[in-house]
């Protein structure tokens, strides 16, 4: 009885030790494999809005070209531009155009950024199908979200309180909406979202609330709109024309809440970077654009 107890502990310690040794062994083959393959790397940094798109492109391209490694990081369009100016990346993603001062800084460093429009992004305004409102002006949308308009009857709907839905503040769409719809592109404007704007963590959350709540208004990328939501036609002026978002109206620039998404390369791209950018503009890569809810630059 007494002798039995001690070996039990040592068995336990022995198993523990064996487990540690085994788990340590498992790691070593992986690390040696990685170091034997040498890859040509393309550094890609910038817009958070585009980071998923850039990752999808990178994954698909690396599957085609195993000799190329593309490292994609976010951080925002400004971060990407700064990296491009400092020469630490090959290509920078941006959901806005390069600023004149950024271009000047880059040229001082001997870098001449070349612009590529790689995709377009439309933001649809969506409501419940039961909502009789079909069209809104940008000003009305801005007033709804900033809290100046609180009832659907003020914009030609029923006497119902408006429930505002938005993506979380970390979403690029949220920022774009704040800057270009609420503030209408005016940098001095300090308008904020009304505090009772519901900040939903996912597009699914916005979708399900829109589908079952006639009070609700929401906005989201065109790719997230489903058949059981009603899309609002938008105009910049009260006279119209009121335009529904579609791949066609975005391409023709008729739909007002849309923007280009850019990639900037340092100088005229050469070699692998050239190949990669050419591929991004190909119909194969633009199909990935469509799949992620953005609008391709060449109509499919």
């Amino acid at each position: 009885m007494i002798r039995y107890r001690i070996p039990l502990i040592f068995h336990f310690l022995g198993i523990l030790f064996a487990a540690i040794v085994l788990s340590a062994c498992q790691k070593s083959p992986g690390s040696t494999n990685a170091s034997t393959i040498s890859l040509q790397t393309i550094e890609n940094k910038g817009s958070d809005t585009m980071v998923n798109l850039a990752l999808a492109w990178a994954e698909a391209y690396q599957a085609k070209r195993p000799d190329i490694s593309i490292s994609v990081t976010g951080g925002g369009s400004g971060t990407g531009m700064a990296a491009l100016i400092n020469g630490t990346v090959d290509i920078a993603n941006a959901s806005r155009q390069i600023k004149p001062e950024e271009r000047a800084d880059a040229e001082l460093n001997g870098i001449f950024p070349t612009e590529f429009i790689v995709a377009r992004d439309a933001i649809a305004i969506i409501v419940n199908p039961e909502n009789p409102v079909n069209r809104l002006t940008i000003d009305q949308i801005a007033d709804i979200y900033s809290g100046k308009i609180n009832n659907w009857s003020e914009v030609g709907g029923e006497n119902l309180l408006i429930v505002r839905l938005s993506r979380e503040t970390n979403s690029g769409t949220h920022i774009y909406f704040l800057e270009h719809v609420l503030r209408k592109g005016n940098k001095e404007d300090k308008t904020l979202f009304s505090t009772n704007t519901l900040l939903l963590p996912s597009s699914e959350g916005i979708g399900s609330e829109i589908c079952q709540n006639p009070h609700a208004i929401g906005y989201d990328g065109l790719g997230y709109v489903t058949e059981d939501m009603k899309v609002i036609a938008v105009s910049t002026t009260t006279e119209g024309p009121y335009v529904l978002p579609s791949i066609h109206t975005v391409t023709s620039q008729e739909y007002p809440i849309s923007r280009d998404l850019y990639i900037y390369s340092s100088g005229e791209p050469i070699g692998n970077v050239r190949d990669y950018l050419d591929w991004i503009l190909s119909s194969e890569a633009q199909e990935i654009v469509l799949g992620l809810g953005f609008v391709p630059i060449t109509p499919q």
């Binding site: 979380e168 505090t195 009772n196 519901l198 900040l199 963590p201 959350g205």
Partner: peptide, 9 residues
């Protein structure tokens, strides 16, 4: 996070 609307009121 899913059901309270997350509006900081």
């Amino acid at each position: 996070m899913m059901v309270t609307g997350n509006a900081p009121v």
